[in-house]
Design a protein around this nucleic acid. Structure first.
Length: 489
RNA sequence: GCCCCGUUAGUGUAGCGGCCUAACACGCCACCCUUUCAAGGUGGAGAUCACGAGUUCGAAUCUCGUACGGGGUACCA
């Protein structure tokens, strides 16, 4: 596929809460589309609603994008040629546009209050009519409205939407979409507090920032005719539109806290790898067109096509996310995983760390196929660092009594000690020793080894035993075995 | 209510008029491997492609209708 030239796309969230999955997937697709076509990816903060603004959420959005490594070329803290990138800092531009619209009679002021509007709508509903603005101020003289404003009445500016006709656009994925203008109200473009509404600010900015393609959520489809109207009224070039399907929870309702984590900050805390989240998100509503499932961010940015997008909403599946996180962990280099493990140990262990890098490398290869998230690392290898004696009833072996178990462990301790004296021991010699002892006692491998495992790790589940003993060292292993001896004698 | 979008196994997707008695992946079940747990391997259950008409020699694929789901209808985005 040839590249599209001069691509400029944007991710334009409102700072009204933590960045959620759906928003991040929109960001991902925008990012991928930009990268694919050697275009620019822009972050713009749409903070025109001062009431819903949540302090800190802009920072969270930025942190989220950073964590996911969705690097933007222009944005709030890094600037760019089309700034500022906070809508609240672009008020003058909107005002200029609005005034021009007013002068050209393409917009008009209205002094109806929210309460009055509400009353009108309720009245319409009760009479079985479609609720909406009734055009109250559409033909009133401008001076009258200017006076209202001077008198301190809340005055908004509305767009003069044509009474009839239709407007259409071509969604790059969904095809031609046609809307009847008579169904569209004279909607508000400038609020009484002097802030623009989304519709106005969004169009002005996309135009001024020379956005070429708008990839946004499906919830915007029905607003698109409004945007088209504004583009037309201000004589601006219309970008291409691609509407992305929504993401739902298991019960087909909008994704929320009830469905598990929704904020991507929470996913970070849950031990997810950013690349795995990206991989999963990419597969929700998009497909490279074949059976490929393991995708790195680079793969996504190379393979991304509008054609591969889906048009129907998808349901978020935490289990598949978890699975793909496991795949990404397994695909990771041992060195990289070893570093992560080290950090997890530093964060969790009470003891002094007594292992060298080589040990971490070994641990890494032992556990990489046993974990599906970073948070599972420490519980699995805790016994290396913070040993807890097993419960008494874990010191058992087939139907042997305590005396037999005691002599069995004593023998092992002795044998291990002499193995240690011979110096060089490794996984193989440890394995040979244990298997030999097991055979001599006529025990099932399974029974014998689980006794030893329980003693040494304090748990019935652990990474492979022989390797674990090697890493632990024979001295430490024997000390633990002796502790268990005390427990049953 | 009105406007708009959508509908392939429980979930995500593939399919783009004949290769479809519908494929892959997650999940589920069984078996194999195996020192536990995993991972891996093999196999299985699970979809009359929402339903009904039509176009066509032929439809999951094209058209229309219905049902269902969702979105919008705010001085929210």
């Amino acid at each position: 596929m040839s590249k599209i030239s001069n691509v400029r796309v944007r991710f334009a969230p409102s700072p009204t809460g933590d960045p959620h999955l759906g928003a991040m997937r929109t960001a991902l697709f925008n990012w991928a589309f930009a990268r694919k076509n050697d275009g620019k990816f822009i972050l713009r903060i749409e903070d025109t609603d001062r009431n819903r603004l949540v302090p800190g959420s802009t920072e969270n959005i930025i942190e989220g994008l950073r964590w996911l490594n969705l690097i933007y070329d222009e944005g709030p803290e890094i600037g760019g040629d089309f700034g500022p990138y906070f809508q609240s800092e672009r008020k003058e531009m909107y005002l200029k546009v609005v005034n021009k619209l007013l002068d050209e009679d393409k917009a008009y002021m209205c002094d109806l209050s929210s309460e009055e509007l509400e009353k009108i709508r309720n009245d319409q509903k009760s009479r079985g009519l479609a609720p909406g603005y009734n055009g109250f101020s559409r033909n009133r003289p401008r001076e009258e409205l200017e006076k209202s404003k001077k008198d301190g009445k809340p005055v908004v500016v509305r767009l003069k939407v044509p009474i009839s006709g239709s407007i259409e656009f071509n969604d790059l994925k969904r095809g031609k979409l046609i809307f009847d203008l008579s169904k569209i109200d004279d909607f508000i473009i400038l609020k009484a507090d002097g802030m623009p509404t989304y519709h106005l600010a969004n169009v002005v900015d996309d135009s001024k920032m020379e956005i070429s393609h708008v990839l946004r959520g499906e919830e915007w489809i029905s607003s698109t005719p409004k945007h088209l109207l504004i583009y037309d009224f201000i004589n601006a070039k219309v970008p291409e539109f691609i509407h992305l399907p929504l993401i739902f929870g298991k019960d087909k309702s909008k994704l929320s806290k009830r469905h598990g984590a929704n904020s991507i900050i929470e996913y970070k805390k849950q031990g997810l790898l950013p690349n795995a989240l990206l991989n999963y998100l990419a597969l929700l509503g998009w497909s490279p067109g074949n059976d490929l499932e393991f995708l790195t961010p680079e793969d996504i940015s190379k393979l991304f096509e509008i054609k591969g997008l889906s048009t129907s909403p998808s349901i978020f599946d935490a289990e598949k996310l978890s699975w793909i996180n496991g795949v990404h962990i397994r695909e990771m280099d041992d060195e990289k995983l070893a570093n992560i493990i080290k950090k997890e140990v530093e964060a969790n262990s009470m003891q002094d760390i007594k292992y060298i890098d080589e040990d971490y490398l070994k641990i890494s290869s032992l556990i990489k196929e046993r974990i599906k998230s970073i948070n599972e690392i420490y519980p699995l290898i805790k016994f290396f660092f913070d040993y807890e004696l097993p419960k008494k009833d874990l010191i058992k072996c087939a139907d042997l009594d305590n005396n037999e178990i005691e002599s069995l462990i004593k023998k092992l301790v002795n044998d291990l000690r002499s193995l240690n004296e011979n110096d060089k021991y490794d996984t193989q010699s440890i394995e040979e020793l244990l298997r030999k002892n097991c055979k001599e006692m006529n025990l099932k491998v399974r029974d014998y080894l689980s006794l030893i495992r329980n003693c040494i790790t304090g748990s019935e589940v652990s990474p492979p035993l022989f390797e674990s003993i090697e890493i632990l060292g024979i001295k430490e292993t024997n000390s633990r075995l002796n502790n268990c001896l005390n427990l049953i004698s």
